[in-house]
């Protein structure tokens, strides 16, 4: 029993020190933003590897998620004779929840794990301390551009995911199952509010982009500099990002859609 309490105390202490290091790291990242903006080339390179390379997986997944929503929504709604509202259902689920959440999860798996592995390997091969010895701050030069790229890419990717998904739902709904196309769009426009739904969805994806990039970069930077350490850090990135995304989604949803 005492052993258990001791272990609990120990793991609390460890997680607090880790949280402390992560917060300090975040401050370092943010203090480097100005120096990155002066050199947009650094940011552009990272927008390529973080954003462009995630583009395909996000759009294809978005299309399929939208198509599935179209099918399932149609079957459920037609039981109540309410197929006309398919558009609202597809759009609301995508814009409010699935767009930000699923694209963030995919982003963590595609870009987040790649970031952790890249930074971890740079640490393991002494590239980061090499840079420090060349009087170049690795956080400013390497980490901050990647963080900004993730932060910028995430809402764009989530927007793409939702847009492609809504089109996928329309393809199935009115193309295949015969929901009136006009009703699909007009019901959607009547039911989806710009501020309550779209802006809130974008805010969610901004938060997810921030948290996922932070976790991925921190795990890479904090990894034990061996091949085993890096592979563990990569796993932790995906797991921790998924937990944070889903947990934060609950909190944000409660805050945003609570008073209605």
């Amino acid at each position: 029993m005492i052993r258990f309490i001791q272990n609990l105390g120990k793991s609390t202490r460890i997680s607090f020190t880790k949280l402390g290091r992560a917060s300090y790291f975040l401050i370092q990242i943010i203090s480097g933003i100005a120096s990155v903006l002066v050199r947009p080339r650094l940011l552009l390179n990272q927008l390529y590897s973080v954003g462009v390379l995630s583009f395909l997986i996000i759009t294809i997944s978005g299309l399929f998620v939208g198509m599935v929503l179209g099918l399932q929504g149609y079957y459920t709604l037609s039981d109540f004779g309410a197929e006309e509202t398919l558009g609202v259902m597809v759009a609301a689920s995508l814009v409010r929840e699935l767009g930000p959440v699923v694209s963030a999860l995919l982003f963590a798996g595609r870009a987040g794990s790649a970031l952790t592995a890249e930074i971890g390997l740079m640490k393991a091969t002494e590239q980061l301390s090499g840079m420090e010895m060349m009087a170049v701050d690795p956080v400013k030069r390497i980490i901050t551009p990647r963080f900004l790229a993730g932060f910028i890419s995430m809402p764009l990717l989530a927007g793409l995911f939702s847009a492609v998904g809504i089109i996928g739902g329309e393809m199935i709904g009115s193309g295949l199952l015969g929901v009136d196309e006009g009703a699909y769009w007009s019901q959607m426009q009547a039911g989806i509010d710009f501020y309550d739904d779209i802006i809130n969805g974008v805010i969610k994806s901004v938060v997810f982009g921030f948290v996922t990039s932070w976790i991925a970069l921190f795990e890479g930077y904090d990894a034990i500099p061996t091949s085993e350490g890096v592979s563990r850090a990569t796993t932790r990135t995906v797991v921790n990002s998924a937990f944070s995304i889903l947990g934060l989604d609950f909190i944000l949803t409660a805050l945003m859609f609570g008073d209605n």
């Binding site: 390997l121 740079m122 590239q127 090499g130 840079m131 010895m133 060349m134 009087a135 701050d137």
Partner: peptide, 19 residues
């Protein structure tokens, strides 16, 4: 410290080239 490091060169065991 960074000014001082500009006047130091360090050769790491692995080379530490940026990949």
């Amino acid at each position: 410290l960074y000014d001082l490091r500009k006047r130091l060169g360090m050769l790491f065991q692995s080379g530490a080239l940026l990949t």
